[in-house]
Amino acid sequence: MRKHVLCLLVVGLGAASIVSRAQVPASCIDNAVINCYNGCNDPLSFKDCIIGCAIGSNNDPRNCREKCPEPPVCESNCIKSSVAISNCSFVAGQLTATCGVAVLNRATGFWSRTVRATNTSQEPIGDIAFVVDSLAAGWSLLNGDGVTEDYAPAGMPYKNVPTLAAGQSSTFTLQFKRTGTLPFGYVTRVITASGKG
């Protein structure tokens, strides 16, 4: 049994350069929007919530900010359904990431985790970032290139990944600092530049 073969990827794909809408199964879009609708339980914000979910079906979070008449409820639900649709795209097999175990570099005192991202699609994937979501308490990413803004959850550190041609892999190392003796862990997300904010 091999573990850590794939990092747990939650992908927010906003740009057509990574996954075109045509590649996303229609049933996935429907499910994402319906799930979003089902979360619209507050009578006071019901209309804005529904509108946000619908706008999110366009699978581009930039539309959320521009097209929502009544943010922030509309915008947050727009992003919610947009990201859910993008997840379908990843599951359909656009990008995989293999993560190594986090190990201590005794020479530097920092922790390293090497990641190998592979474009499994037939199209180039460019301008993407590997997001470290919900990093375990006591850990911080040292060599990030920024923090997310457009994609929820915002404020998560990310590392840019070079453009990947069809079938190409890229290996990069995330460098962490740990305070205390807390276990390591995070949820992985891959986004495009449009989602960085």
Partner: peptide, 18 residues
Amino acid sequence: TFFITNDGTGFAESWTLL
């Protein structure tokens, strides 16, 4: 390219990718 770990859920091959 691999060593063996158990994260509490079972033994598995793991690697550093280094």
